[in-house]
Design a protein around this nucleic acid. Sequence first.
DNA 1: AAGAATGTTATGTA
DNA 2: CTACATAACATTCT
Length: 262
Amino acid sequence: MPEGHTIHRAARKHAELLGGAAVSAESPQGRFTDGAREIDGQVLQRVDAHGKHLLYRFPDDLTLHVHLGLFGRFLTHRGAPPEPRGAIRLRLSGPDGTIDLRGPTACELMDPPEVEALLARLGPDPLRADADPERAWNRISRSTRPIGALVMDQSVLAGVGNVYRAEALLVQGIHPERPGREVTPAEFDALWGTLTRMLQDGVRAGRIITVSAEDAGMPRSRIPRGERTYVYRQSTCRRCGGPVRDWQMDGRRAWACPTCQS
DNA sequence: AAGAATGTTATGTA
DNA sequence: CTACATAACATTCT
């Protein structure tokens, strides 16, 4: 479910819903009882998103780190919290509402050195104002690894997942298997720009729609599901109409249009 | 109802 | 260092 756009969106929403007030924390399923106990009653000061990672900041350098992984999900409720349903690993409630967390890969308390270590191993996040694309370029331009692998490597670029990888590379005409060092500086700049725009669109829309209104021949809001991407999970390229190839890359499925991408 | 999926880490082999 | 493979873990949807 989540690429960077989901996480940044959640950060905003959670800060708005729970920020500035004392939060009650519980772990209905018992996976996170210790952490919940420490957070309980603390004031949520800030929620930071870095790529696919969320940091909930509490006083005294107390930081809750959450990573949704492939299956993790948030459910938010305004007003009175409903009876917990299913495996809720963490529930945070404030005066205005509640967020439930299920299925995370990570949900843990971190001290400042741990937070520092986490951030140190993340590449620049196109959704962050402080992102430095040069750091990503330094890695990419020196690597023989395929650009499709590099773009998904969170230490190269933070926040990009399988869908945006497929889509951004299609739009830029770069084949995922091309070695990083064969990507030109101009191509990288354009790729960074496209990723930034796509991720920002995702934050705005709350879902991934990479196909433009022009290419779809209709307003983007009305594009049917299954037609919102150019190559991701497509059998024909929504740009040129040609056949789309798919194969495994680092254990994930990759898609590309051999006509549009080289 | 098996299998796939917007993810990461750790480990092992070459 | 890189590539490549395998496995573990989480949950929902078809």
